[in-house]
Simulated scan of single mutants.
Amino acid sequence: MRYWLFKSEPSTWSWDQQVAKGDTGEEWDGVRNYQARNFMREMSIGDRGFFYHSQKEKAVVGVVEVCAEAHPDSTTDDDRWDCVDIRALHPVQTPVTLDDIKAHPDLSEMVLVKNSRLSVQPVTETEWTLICTLAGISP
């Protein structure tokens, strides 16, 4: 299993909207960055991810699971763009903010710290475990 982080502006797509999609999940569509697209092409069903609210909140707010591997993004006819489907698993007990992450020395190399604009990014197993601990959930 691999770990990921999915960033969304809550005004565009929020954790509550993701949860409302239930077990069927939803396409993580609209990504128009080659690096983020390539990360989605690496994903497998069952991979886990953090759902991260960007903009004002800037925090990990939930955990999701990849429920469909990369396929053409339904929001475009351009065949360069793929997406995965994700479903909400559970919220975190305590949101983990970007400031919390930046303040932790063991997270200083995290992609979120180095390239905070990337909307889909990998998370190492060590980073996953540590953020889960900070969030009050079991890794």
Rank of each mutant, 00 (worst) to 15 (best):
W15I: 04
D16N: 12
D16E: 14
D16Y: 06
Q17A: 11
Q17G: 02
V19F: 05
V19C: 07
A20D: 06
K21Q: 09
K21C: 00
T24W: 00
T24V: 09
G25E: 01
G25F: 01
E26N: 14
W28E: 03
W28L: 03
D29C: 04
G30R: 14
R32K: 13
R32M: 07
N33A: 06
N33S: 02
Y34I: 00
A36F: 02
A36V: 01
R37V: 01
N38F: 02
N38R: 12
F39M: 03
E42Y: 02
E42P: 00
E42Q: 14
M43I: 07
M43K: 12
I45E: 13
I45A: 07
I45T: 13
G46P: 08
D47H: 07
R48E: 06
G49W: 05
G49D: 05
F51P: 00
F51T: 03
H53F: 10
H53V: 02
H53C: 07
S54W: 04
Q55H: 10
Q55L: 08
K56T: 02
K56H: 06
K56Q: 10
E57W: 04
K58H: 08
A59S: 13
V60L: 09
V60Y: 09
V61H: 12
V63I: 14
V64S: 11
E65Y: 01
E65H: 06
V66K: 10
C67T: 12
C67N: 15
A70R: 12
A70D: 03
A70H: 05
A70S: 15
H71F: 10
H71Q: 12
P72N: 05
S74N: 09
T75P: 03
T75E: 14
D77V: 06
D77L: 14
D79Q: 15
D79T: 12
D79N: 15
D79A: 15
D79I: 08
W81N: 06
D82P: 03
C83G: 02
V84Y: 07
V84W: 02
D85G: 04
I86S: 08
R87C: 03
A88R: 12
L89V: 13
P91L: 03
V92S: 15
V92G: 12
P95R: 14
P95F: 10
V96C: 10
T97H: 10
L98M: 09
L98R: 09
L98V: 05
D99M: 12
D99G: 11
I101L: 12
K102N: 13
K102W: 05
A103C: 06
H104I: 01
H104Q: 14
H104V: 00
P105M: 07
D106W: 03
L107F: 02
S108I: 05
S108D: 13
S108E: 14
V111W: 10
V111D: 08
L112S: 08
L112T: 09
V113P: 13
V113Y: 15
V113D: 13
V113W: 15
N115F: 00
N115Y: 07
S116K: 13
S116V: 07
S116F: 08
R117C: 02
L118Q: 15
L118C: 04
L118H: 12
L118D: 05
S119C: 07
P122S: 09
P122F: 02
P122K: 14
V123A: 05
T124Q: 11
E125Y: 00
T126H: 11
T126E: 13
T126S: 12
T126M: 07
E127K: 10
E127N: 07
W128E: 07
W128I: 00
T129H: 03
T129P: 00
T133E: 11
